[in-house]
Write a protein that binds this DNA or RNA. Structure first.
Lengths: 140, 140
DNA sequence: TTCATAATAGTGTATATACACTATATTTTC
DNA sequence: GAAAATATAGTGTATATACACTATTATGAA
């Protein structure tokens, strides 16, 4: 009982993205992070201290998407905002707890990356990445 | 100022899926439908009368995802549930309003399909589709 | 220095997605 | 026919995503 692709390219890529998300989340599950949270922590780690707008720009996500995602990370104690009261721009950075979670997650993320590379083949994955980049550029 | 791909394959495909969604939603905007709603209406049209479980299976979406999406379509008067009171299984079908919306949306969706084909090239799009299918099969 | 403009952050609302769980109808089996 | 098993639907909660809008700080110009 083979499942056919949809005729709709949009539905197809959305389903594939969901599958990949599922794979990454499964690998990351031990760390307690979802791939989106891993990505946020990773970027904050590299950019700290960073404000929401710069982070959103770098991650190419809408700023308001990030506002919500960051809230969960703050509640879990993975990040802090070191900006002074009365100032507008935030100063986000990892807490030691956040650093630990990230350290634990990195090798799991690498396993997920390897899984995809092993299953698609290095060259295919490269082509695929290139195509994704091309597609993304359609809406710039 | 070229934007690099992320090293993370998951982030990359999620962004690309978002871009494609944006393209389709823009083409569909005149119809008042989002691509997800278009897809639901399309499937219901082809399968009616249909219950939520069979629809979810066909669309390869979680059933509970659909429950929420269908609510909006019902509120807008695009679909009705013709099942009798006290029964469990639903009997979903388009209303005349839903049919009109779908008819209006189909050519817009075709334009979006064409846009993607024109911009990626027919062969590339075919390869891409095949890759997406392969990726989706990783989580079966 | 004040007032207009920029930058920055956050909320409300909407769609998209799934998992764990509950609730009820339907079917099967003894 | 009653109990067990299965099918079906729905809710609560969580993440992911963006747009329209509001609010407030920071900056630049007159």
């Amino acid at each position: 009982m083979k499942k056919e692709s949809s005729v709709c390219n949009c539905v197809n890529i959305r389903r594939a993205a969901q599958s990949v998300t599922e794979i990454y989340d499964r690998y990351l599950s031990e760390s307690g992070l979802k791939i989106g949270q891993f990505s946020m922590l990773n970027h904050i780690n590299a950019m700290s201290p960073v404000n929401v707008s710069r982070l959103a720009e770098k991650m190419r996500l809408d700023r308001t998407t990030l506002v919500r995602g960051l809230k969960a990370l703050e509640n879990e104690g993975y990040i802090i905002d070191a900006s002074e009261k009365g100032t507008r721009s935030r100063s986000l950075a990892l807490t030691p707890t956040g650093e630990k979670a990230l350290e634990k997650a990195v090798p799991l993320w690498e396993q997920a990356q390897k899984y995809l590379e092993d299953n698609l083949g290095t060259d295919t994955l490269k082509e695929f990445t290139s195509l994704l980049s091309e597609i993304e550029s359609l809406t710039d």
